[in-house]
């Protein structure tokens, strides 16, 4: 479904990504883990078109994404939940979700009901300004907004960042459920253990390169991964 080949990305003279290749198949949850500054966010931003690549190939269902605008890429049903809680603080929860359906307003109402069904907390706070939501609720709103675009695949950048252990669990169960409904997920996470436990496969990054890849179960037992990311 998503195919990245020999991707190279730089910020000015600084090369952030050199020659990364990865693949995500239809219906999978794939995680991308790695230390701070490894380049995970950069990869997601490049896939969704927010950052331009220097070299390499990005294909989504066969379509070349590299020369495409982010506003076009989302119409291919590839959504992105950016790192950090990016919501529209001075707009209501409802308006935030409406913005998620920006490129495809067909069935918006039904879709919103579905999102509200999944996130009961958001429904109760429909008319509340998004900036007054708690951190966890904001993160849910960001995920809900991405779902409003009716994506086939969703890129998630550290959805559990800064959440209490209980909410982390909730977010992960939501990701699992979203995936069960047929949405493919590429997940970037610091919480490697949790991420690996819901993924089929994973890639481990170090300073702009992929160093280890394989089945999530295998990686959970891999000594290098255990030492560096699982703290064992």
């Amino acid at each position: 479904m998503l195919e990245v080949k020999n991707l190279a990305v730089s910020y000015g003279a600084v090369k952030a990504i050199h020659g990364v290749s990865l693949e995500v198949h239809d219906g999978e949850v794939v995680s991308l883990i790695g230390a701070n500054g490894a380049g995970k966010t950069t990869i997601l931003r490049t896939i969704s078109g927010l950052k331009k690549a220097d070299d390499g190939e990005i294909r989504f269902d066969g379509t070349d994404l590299r020369k495409m605008d982010p506003s076009k890429i989302i119409t291919l049903k590839l959504a992105h939940v950016p790192e950090g809680r990016h919501i529209f603080p001075q707009m209501t929860v409802e308006e935030n979700l409406e913005m998620g359906a920006f490129t495809d307003r067909k069935d918006m109402e039904a879709n919103m009901e579905e999102v509200f069904g999944r996130f009961g907390r958001l429904k109760e706070r429909k008319k509340q300004l998004a900036g007054t939501l708690s951190g966890g609720e904001q993160q849910m709103l960001a995920v809900g907004r991405a779902l409003m675009a009716k994506p086939k695949m969703i890129l998630m950048d550290e959805p559990s960042m800064g959440l209490s252990p209980l909410l982390v669990k909730e977010i992960f169960s939501i990701i699992k459920e979203v995936n069960r409904k047929g949405i493919t997920v590429l997940l970037v996470e610091q919480n490697a253990k949790m991420a690996l436990s819901i993924s089929s496969r994973a890639y481990v990054m170090e300073t702009g390169k992929i160093t280890i890849s394989g089945n999530a179960g295998e990686l959970l037992r891999d000594d290098r991964v255990k030492k560096a990311y699982l703290g064992q």
Binding site: F88, M99, F102, A142
Partner: peptide, 8 residues
């Protein structure tokens, strides 16, 4: 960023 990610 959120606006760009929503396809605006």
């Amino acid at each position: 960023i959120a606006a760009a990610a929503a396809g605006i």
